[in-house]
């Protein structure tokens, strides 16, 4: 049976048929995407099938990304690539300046054929220092991060209760984890999910 990884590879190398094959895998949605076998990498070592950094430019279906370690990555987005920016999104929402993490298959020429690209995603923990109707002020390692509620997008998860759009149970002083999308070059984040232990 052809693996997802093989199909992604062929999508980049083989052109049309491969792209169709990758699309036929479905949405390459979050959970389904993580059953594919990845090559063995020594624990502790850099994962060659992963990249992080900020988008410098976009040409056709390729993101030119400068890693925080100053290494450049060419990240190819194909039909089946799953993109996230505060939620599932489309390639046209990727902008120069966005931060990203990407996972895929590293091609022989060094291009990363992307299975998933997460744009501006952050996952930070901290104490709630203030709450208004629109924002949560988070003390994250001594730095304030302004976390914006986004109507129709922001949810709270109170332990194992079903996700809720009601953020009113959050309290000043409590510890939370906020998964969201960073607003580039600011200390502000749009909230996707607030995880509260109770």
């Amino acid at each position: 049976m052809t693996s997802r990884r093989q199909l992604l590879k062929s999508a980049v190398l083989g052109g049309g048929a491969g792209v169709v094959a990758a699309t036929a895998l479905g949405s390459l949605g979050p959970e389904a995407a993580f059953g594919a076998a990845a090559p063995d990498v020594e624990p502790g070592a850099p994962d060659p099938d992963f990249a992080e950094g900020r988008i410098r430019s976009i040409k056709d279906n390729t993101l030119l990304v400068l890693g925080s370690n100053m290494v450049f990555h060419n990240i190819r987005v194909v039909d089946g690539t799953s993109l996230w920016k505060l939620g599932p999104t489309t390639f046209d929402q990727a902008k120069p300046g966005d931060g990203l993490y990407a996972r895929g298959v590293r091609m022989p020429d060094g291009v990363l054929a992307a299975e998933s690209v997460w744009l501006n995603i952050v996952n930070i923990k901290g104490h709630v220092s203030n709450i208004t109707s629109e924002k949560i002020h988070l003390d994250h390692k001594g730095q304030e991060v302004l976390c914006h509620r986004v109507a129709g997008k922001s949810i709270a998860v109170y332990s194992d209760a079903p996700p809720s759009a009601d953020l009113s149970l959050l309290r000043v002083g409590q510890h939370v984890q906020i998964l969201g999308a960073w607003r580039p070059d600011t200390n502000e984040v749009d909230i996707a999910t607030v995880f509260s232990p109770h």
Partner: peptide
């Protein structure tokens, strides 16, 4: 490790080796 956004102030962790791109 070296990073962007709110992570940019994060260091290399207690062991001095931590990087977002590593299997750690």
């Amino acid at each position: 490790g070296t990073a962007w956004g709110p992570c940019s102030s994060t260091g290399k962790g207690a062991c001095g080796t931590c990087n977002s791109g590593n299997l750690q």
